[in-house]
């Protein structure tokens, strides 16, 4: 028996919006500690890892570990039927091949349930080793989204370089080049507006912008984004979900031939 009640149902709607274009089908893993997902995009260039910890749910019951294969496009269709203020409850019986999404309006005057068919998904689970990153940049998520969008009108790839000067996002294309430098800035009114750069070593890596733009769909989940870079490792683009967990995107770099 599985029953997860999320008062802030809009969080789940935002999570689906953030990942549905990157991943078609995925297994949601439910255990006593939380609700999680790990999946790669179809070309195995990017990986998404989601964690929603049990303490973030108002009610969390998961009697035994369960893996539920879902088509994210179909799941998104169902969650779009929930209001932004609705409470969302996920329910599944042991051995069932369906999951039920229950939507309750805040004043309890409307209750809907949507039952979705589960699917068998044969996906490999990857071990993500703990790594020391050469540079970690925390910046406003909207700023990062803006930079990725702007650069993708000029070129297809972005070079992200961290030096003691700051973090530089560069691209080039047929019409010209673009460089955007963000310096550390902690003298802001609100902590979420700060740009904080922790650098152990300078690092410079190249990534496909279309993936970065896809990751930026998670912007509504968090005011800030954390970008962790190490040479010869996938970049980690992390959006923390307040009090609950995170969505992390890993993107393999482009490398010199």
């Amino acid at each position: 028996m599985l029953e997860l009640r999320l008062v802030q149902g809009s969080l789940l709607k935002k999570v689906l919006e953030a990942i549905k274009d990157l991943v078609n089908d995925a297994n949601f893993d439910c255990s006593a500690t939380g609700f999680s997902l790990q999946a790669m995009d179809s070309s195995h260039v990017a990986l998404v890892a989601l964690l929603l910890r049990n303490e973030g749910f108002e009610h969390y019951r998961c009697d035994r570990n369960i893996s539920m294969g879902m088509n994210l496009g179909n799941m998104n269709k169902m969650l779009k039927c929930a209001g932004n203020d609705d409470i969302i409850t996920l329910k599944a019986d042991d051995g069932s091949d369906t999951v039920t999404f229950m939507f309750e309006s805040p004043n309890q005057d409307k209750i809907a349930d949507f039952e979705m068919k589960l699917m068998d998904i044969d996906s490999e689970h990857l071990g993500i080793p703990e790594a020391e990153y050469h540079a970690i940049v925390r910046m406003p998520s909207a700023e990062f989204a803006r930079i990725c969008k702007d650069l993708s009108s000029i070129g297809d790839t972005v070079v992200i370089s961290v030096t003691k000067e700051g973090v530089k996002f560069s691209t080039k294309g047929d019409i010209g080049t673009a460089n955007i430098v963000c310096r550390q800035n902690t003298t802001v009114d609100k902590p979420e507006e700060a740009t904080v750069i922790e650098m152990k070593e300078p690092v410079s890596l190249t990534f496909a912008l279309r993936y970065m733009n896809s990751f930026a769909k998670a912007t509504p989940l968090s005011h800030t984004v954390t970008i962790s870079l190490s040479s010869e490792l996938p970049v980690v683009v992390e959006y923390k979900i307040e009090d609950m967990g995170y969505v992390r995107f890993y993107l393999a770099p482009k490398i010199e031939e």
Binding site: V45, P234, A252
Partner: peptide, 14 residues
Amino acid sequence: QCLQSRISDYFGRD
């Protein structure tokens, strides 16, 4: 010219 690497080049099966 750059080549796109893949996630499996860095992370192994669990």
